[in-house]
Structure formats: structure tokens, C-alpha cells
Design a protein around this nucleic acid. Structure first.
Lengths: 276, 276
DNA sequence: AACAAAGTTCCACTATTCGGAAATAAATTT
DNA sequence: AAATTTATTTCCGAATAGTGGAACTTTGTT
């Protein structure tokens, strides 16, 4: 039942005016439609959702398939192509940010024994960039690249707290508050007051707001120039990870986030005046 | 040094005439340039490799960045954007083929105790779609989506053996034979005779041809309609996995490949006459 | 401070995309 | 099995978006 509107109204980079990306933008919108469908859509399904003329859509899909961004199955339904996997693999392997963060994630995992995540803000979603855990019942790669709403996750709220008020305000307009558990924040007011608290303390909690039985502490990582908004978190099952324990870990998480920022500054730093 | 020519001369889908993908094709070529660079390239680097006018390139890169396919760092160098990660995650999670294959990969791993791979052929490369292993010294996600040349890997050669002679011939023209180890196949002749052998026996070996100390047995998976060419393999360190052992596993690998094909046929099958 | 190199903007020109309609192919019903 | 409906693919003049040379601005260097 994936209806219209699953695909965000493309606010592009938060805060900026959405620039027109022409043909490319249309192509990406099609990829979004395919990616956002529960089941592989057929030509007519895409036609309905894209509101484009038949001829146009047909050529566009043809190009997407020829480039390996989409694949057509034998029953004429479309799925995302494997070329995307290859790009993602390169992207992940080379991401300076992930590489810099990795040792700190491992240290945090060693100190806490629980799962550590690294995630990045994109529009009103966070995208998991890395995950460190010891006993992996669930498979790691199933998480990397996954997107979740910012307002109901620890890292997400931490990221939001690192934005400027204008950016945050702009993003709020694009958000749809869906209730995942009974603790999920219900609307903009609740989120804003939570963000204020996070700015004060420097860390965010997820008190079973996205998934029942899952809690976390997170801290924001914001590049000095505002070009990077990310966060790290320590996540665990509610039965094992009580609130006091989360609070005890908070300083560690903040310290790790700080260390990552420092390392990033060292690596890319001597560019534009760190000192005033 | 990643020089010109790293990016394949786009044979598109093997055997077919390369169709023009217009604007999209140009954009993807740019992504390829960024993905194929050792270090994040700056505007001028891309300018040199793309051989396009400055103004044009500038707008194109702007569009790619606006769409989240590329990201510009603070020093004006470009890296692949995280939107690609998100697409890849969706692609992977929903891939019917991977889902169908997964239990068979696990069974094969349980039977052999060694690492099992699932990979797909794309042009003259294979792309790893999945990996099952128990003790993971190396992190799993670092492999998924990775591309390797077909001619020097077990799954790669298995895939090639499933192609028609015309398709294989067309692909051969696009291949550049690079020597990775002293066992790497040196040219088209060696590859063709090896493919003949694989077609006869139904399985392929990698005798430390891609990496010293790594061996594997692989079997091809080809969809009836030729729309899917893939393979699975069991891989292990040379000191633990001797040739006799590989040969003993070959029937298991072939059986697993067969089972995956059967399951795919059942899942998508009742379409066009399975019975004559 | 002056120079050089890299990055960005502008706008007349042109190749690409658009989109309606008509042909073909695949399912479904009679 | 033929007819009907629905889905997919092809075509081509009109409209749009992309192109590319040159001028301009910023950044880094001698």
C-alpha cells in the first residue's frame, strides 16, 4: 500500500532553496518511486505515481535500465539495479568520515559492550553509516545505508540539535510524525522541547520511541562549517540497558563524538581559521 | 594512479548494442570518475578526465550534489554521496534473488564451514551480492557491492561459462587482463579453454588467481531466459583448503546453485511454459 | 602586493527530452 | 479459440533543458 507521498517533497539540502536538477532530478524521482514501493512496481504503477506521459516515462525507464540503475524482471516489474550497490560499496569504503570515526566507535563498543552506531543526517532522515557490535544475531550489512526518521531516534534527535534554528524550522515543515511506539514524540512542540534539552545536556536519549524494547544514548557530531551533521549512539535492549546506565554512558558518548570532531578537524582542519 | 580507461567503455548489457542514455549517461560517467578515483578528485581533476567544457561540468556536478549523489567536501573535492548508500540498502533488502538464495548459502556454509559468496555478473565484472561466514575477522559489509574482474575469480568464470558464445565473445573484447598473482589467467585463449572446462564439469576453481592464498570452487546460476547470470562459491585460505577438498565440495556447490535456480523458477516460474 | 590557478556565472545556440497518439503485445473474458 | 480489454512499446514535431565559450570572482602562491 505505498501511496503517493511516501517520497518526500524533496527539500534538497536543508535550509537552502531547492534547486532544479532538471533531467537528473526526474530520474532520481523515478528511482525513489521504485525504492519506496513495497513490491516491485510495474510500468503502469510507476506511470500512476509519477504523473508523466507514457512515452516520456518509457524512455526514462529505458535509460535507467540501460545504466544499470534499475533492472526489469521477467514479469516487467522494476527493481533497483545492482550498479547502485557498487557505487555504495565505493562510497562506504572511501568515506573519510567513516574511516576517521571507526576507531572511536570500536573504543565505545569496548567500553560499553553494546552496539554502537554512526549515522548521518540527510533531510529529515538519518542514514546509518556504520555499526559496531560483537555478537551479531542480526547481520550487519542489513543496517548500513538504512534510513530512519530523525525525530524518533537517538542519533536523529542529536543531529537535529546540532542544526541552526532556521534549519530546524525548515525541516520541521517537511516532517510527518508517525507513532511507532507509545513513547514516540507526537509533534513539533514535543520535538522542539526535546531538542532544547539535548542542546543543554549535550546528549539525546531514545526511550523506546522507535521500537519497543530498544533504548539508546546519542551525541551529535557537527562540523564547524555546518557541512556535516551526524551522530553516534550506544544502543541496547531495554531489559539490559536501564536509564541510569544510559546516563552513565552519556559522558563517554559525548567524549567519543568530540574526539571524532577533533580528528576530523585535524585531518581537514588547517584550512580556514580554527582560531578567531 | 587511476588513469583514463579505468571506466569501461560502457558495453551496457552484454551482447546488446550500447544505447544512448543521453543526459543520464553523462551524469553516471561523472559518478564513475569520482568512484574510480583513488583520492577524492577536485573540480579540475574531473574536468581533465571528463573532457567536457568547464561551464557544462560545473552545472552537472552541481546537479549531482543537489541530488545527494555526490558530496563536496570543504576543500572542494568531491566524494560519492550518501543517497547512494540508501538506494543500495533498499536494493539489497528487496532483491528477490538474494532473498531466495540466502537459505541455500547458509546451508552451504554449514556443510563446508567456509565462506560462501553470492555474486552477479555485470558487464565483465562480478558484484558481490551476499556473503555468509561465521567468524568474521573482516567486516561483512565491506564486501557487499564490491566489484572484481570476472576472469580471475571463481564466480566470475562460472558466470562467463553460462553466457552464450556470442555474449562471451563480445565481453572478451572489453576485457583487459591484469596479472594479480602468478596463477592469473593471462589472456583470452586461457580464459576460453578454462570456460570450456567449466561448461563440461559444471564448476569453476580459483587457484589463487586473484589473491595469493585464497582458493575457491564456484558454480554458475543462469536464469532460463538469460536475464540473470550469477554464481555462488565456497572460498577459503589455501593452507586449509586443498584442491582435493575443493573437488569434494564441487557437487555441493553445484547442487546449491541448482536449488537456487529451481527456487527462482518456482517463485517467478508459472509464466511462460515450463513444460513444453 | 601582484600573480597564477581554481572555481563560478552568464547567455545565445543546439541537442535532448517531451508528450500525444497510434501500433503492438500480453492478459482476460466470452 | 476468438474477441475484448489492458498493458507496453514506438514515433515524431514541438518545447525544453543542456551546451560551451568567454568573462568574472575567489582562492592560493611567489
Amino acid at each position: 500500500m505505498t501511496e503517493e507521498g511516501t517520497n518526500s517533497p524533496r527539500p534538497e539540502t536543508a535550509g537552502d532553496v531547492a534547486i532544479d536538477t532538471g533531467t537528473l532530478g526526474k530520474m532520481m524521482a523515478l528511482l525513489d518511486i521504485v525504492a519506496g514501493s513495497e513490491t516491485a512496481p510495474r510500468f503502469t504503477d510507476i506511470l500512476r505515481r509519477s504523473r508523466q506521459p507514457r512515452g516520456t516515462l518509457h524512455r526514462q525507464l529505458g535509460h535507467l535500465v540501460a545504466e544499470g540503475l534499475l533492472a526489469m524482471r521477467s514479469d516487467h516489474s522494476y527493481e533497483l539495479g545492482i550498479r547502485l550497490l557498487k557505487f555504495a560499496s565505493d562510497s562506504w569504503a572511501r568515506s573519510e568520515f567513516r574511516i576517521v570515526a571507526e576507531p572511536h566507535l570500536k573504543a565505545l563498543h569496548a567500553a560499553t559492550g553494546e552496539t554502537v552506531h554512526l549515522a548521518l543526517l540527510r533531510d529529515a532522515e538519518i542514514i546509518y553509516l556504520d555499526k559496531v557490535e560483537s555478537r551479531q544475531a542480526v547481520r550487519m550489512s542489513s543496517q548500513i545505508g538504512k534510513a530512519s526518521p530523525a525525530y524518533c531516534t537517538g542519533v536523529g534527535k542529536a543531529c537535529l540539535s546540532a542544526l541552526s534554528d532556521e534549519q530546524l524550522k525548515a525541516l520541521l515543515k517537511t516532517m510527518r510524525f508517525q507513532r511507532f511506539t507509545e513513547n514516540t514524540l507526537g509533534g513539533p512542540e514535543a520535538l522542539l522541547s526535546e531538542v532544547a534539552e539535548i542542546r543543554r545536556t549535550g546528549h539525546a536519549f531514545d526511550r523506546e520511541e522507535h521500537e519497543v524494547g530498544i533504548r539508546c544514548v546519542a551525541a551529535p557530531i557537527g562540523a564547524a562549517d555546518g557541512g556535516l551533521v551526524a551522530g553516534i549512539s550506544v544502543t541496547g535492549p531495554a531489559y539490559r540497558v536501564e536509564q541510569p546506565r544510559l546516563e552513565a554512558w552519556a559522558p563517554l558518548v559525548r567524549a567519543a563524538a568530540g574526539a571524532i570532531m577533533t580528528d576530523m578537524a585535524i585531518r581537514f582542519g588547517p584550512q580556514r581559521g580554527v582560531e578567531p
